[in-house]
Design a protein around this nucleic acid. Structure first.
Length: 512
RNA sequence: GGGCCUGUAGCUCAGUUGGUUAGAGCAGUGGACUCAUAAUCCAUUGGUCCUCGGUUCGAGUCCGAGCGGGCCUACCA
């Protein structure tokens, strides 16, 4: 069995889940589920990043211990995962021993190899903001009020030698076209690497930052941001143990476009290279959601609470929208109107209503089980042909992360089932006394159910609950591998027709 | 300053290595039908493919310039 390791970025504990987090989880989950269905041994990791100044500050402000704040955040993000039906195999927290041990061992290793050195850092420090300021923070050549008193100080810190690996990294990106997906993102990285890169400051003195992992070779410091956070990807799969190479190197790190450069495309590969570990196979870089055309931002408060949509509609409805509407890598817009349109026309009208038609007509005209199909004429052949043109293509599109296009094709097929229903009009045939008409009627209803069975199979990576639900309602049971379940079959013949249900109810429309 | 992405019907987007009358879904309009969540099906309206110039027998597709939008360069998924 081929192993397949995939991760999301870890979310920062000092914040609440919003649509962006939800999307990344769902996207990664869809890939993970798809690979599982394709027979891979999948390990899917997500988690949160708990150290750092902001967590320390927020906790202090609320008068609680940092770890208490992290426990809260961990709860929230785990809740997000379960409410989105995320199938992660692991959830890592950077305060866990298994993680801290790996971080310290890597730091020690690099220190011993001479890849980390101590140097003086000189800069303008704001005591109020507890951070060094950059020139860009200046307004009209002055430090703004909010920083309070700013003084130039010298601080000793530890640095990681990034620059010596720059040429190697450029070469690697140039020769590995699938290292960064979508490919246009790689251009940005290469552009960045045309300039010499600076060594990376990886420490903070404990007086300034307490909430972190102490450097093993100098307990007066903690490590800062990336040497802590990025390492989660290997600490979760047993770096340093014999099991490590079961899943490493990772197949995909799924990340937002904001943390591609420099952390995931520069720091992380170089860190791994420096400790002699294989670097990630690929970075899957997604875009951002805007809300009603505006950038999602803390100041305008236009955050979308994913849980609201799950509550109002369903998990699968939200998952469907997120995956159907966004082309992986590009940005996309989220609005109530877009959501409602998708929900009503695709899910409720095309898919839900079709199921409803099948579940209503079959018992009425044919009895409690799906009858055998005995007729195969032009309409049947056309529908089968439509399926033949759909199935393989959708799987192919999924493999290329073109989920939105895959779903588009899947729903085009669902519409052709509706079209077939009109052509055959079982409700008319049922009134006929003619045996041929009765056979055609039975065939039509049975084929509609069968076609629907295959169609919802295609939706499984994106809408797992829906697939299972429809299978149940069609009386379909199978342990067969996914690709086999997508094949035409007689499995429904004789299967018991389920109770009539409304799969995707439309919320009460407001009266005007 | 440098760089990346993007600009195709009212809306969201497809348009493969340049090749005949530019496509889909939604929305709109007309019709059919009644099994169904006023649903589905059929037909149909709608486009100077941002602008200008170039290469070519031929460009939405390639090249150049410009304009608009988003973003990176500068730790928000």
């Amino acid at each position: 069995m081929k192993s397949f390791y995939i991760t999301t970025a870890i979310d920062y504990a000092n914040g609440s889940p919003h649509l962006g987090h939800a999307y990344e989880k769902v996207l990664t989950d869809v890939v993970a589920r798809f690979r599982r269905l394709m027979g891979d041994d999948v390990y899917f990791l997500t988690g949160i990043d708990e150290h750092g100044q902001k967590v320390q500050q927020s906790a202090a402000k609320r008068g609680i211990e940092p770890i208490e704040l992290c426990d809260e955040a961990a709860g929230q993000f785990k809740e997000l995962c379960s409410s989105l039906n995320i199938s992660n195999d692991d959830f890592i927290r950077t305060t866990e021993t298994r993680h801290k041990d790996v971080v310290r061992s890597i730091l020690q290793d690099l220190f011993d190899r001479g890849e980390i050195y101590q140097a003086e850092y000189k800069g303008f420090y704001s005591a109020r903001a507890e951070q060094f300021l950059q020139e860009k923070d200046m307004v009209d050549g002055k430090w703004p009020e909010i920083f309070g008193e700013v003084t130039e100080i010298t601080e000793s810190n530890y640095f990681f030698k990034l620059s010596k690996y720059q040429d190697w990294l450029v070469e690697h990106i140039k020769t590995h076209e699938d290292f960064i997906f979508p490919r246009f993102r790689a251009k940005q990285v290469l552009e960045f690497l045309k300039e010499p890169i600076n060594d990376l400051c990886i420490s903070r003195p404990k007086e300034r930052l307490e909430w972190g992992i102490p450097l093993p070779f100098d307990e007066g410091y903690v490590t800062y941001v990336w040497f802590d956070a990025l390492v989660n990807y290997i600490s979760a799969v047993g770096y340093g143990t014999p099991d490590f190479d079961k899943y490493w190197p990772v197949n995909y790190h799924v990340i937002g476009k904001d943390i591609l450069l420099p952390p995931h495309s520069v720091y992380w590969p170089i860190m791994l290279k420096a400790i002699g570990v294989e670097i990630p196979s690929s970075l899957l870089v997604h875009g951002w959601w805007s809300i009603n055309g505006d950038k999602m931002s803390k100041s305008t408060g236009n955050f979308i609470e994913p849980s609201e949509f799950v509550k109002e509609y369903s998990v699968d409805a939200l998952r469907y929208f997120l995956i159907r509407e966004m082309s992986v890598g590009q940005d996309s817009d989220f609005s109530d109107e877009l959501f409602t349109n998708r929900y009503n026309s695709d899910l409720a009208n095309d898919l839900g209503n079709l199921l409803n038609r099948v579940l209503t007509m079959t018992p009425r005209y044919c009895g409690e089980t799906f009858p055998a199909r005995t007729i195969s004429e032009e309409p049947e052949k056309e529908l089968e042909e439509a399926w033949a043109n759909t199935e393989g293509k959708v799987v192919e599109l999924y493999e290329e992360f073109q989920f939105h296009k895959g779903l588009e094709l899947a729903f085009a097929f669902i519409r052709s089932i509706n079209r077939y229903a009109e052509q055959r009009s079982p409700w008319k045939l049922a009134k006929s006394e003619d045996q041929k008409d009765k056979d055609t009627c039975a065939t039509a209803l049975s084929l509609m159910a069968e076609a629907l069975r295959r169609a919802v199979g295609l939706l499984e990576p994106v809408m797992p609950e829906t697939t299972v639900r429809v299978y149940e309602l069609l009386g379909y049971k199978s342990d067969a591998p996914w690709l086999e379940r997508l094949k035409p079959s007689d499995a429904l013949t004789g299967a018991k027709v389920g109770e009539k249900v409304i799969l995707f109810p439309k919320p009460q429309q407001e009266k005007k």
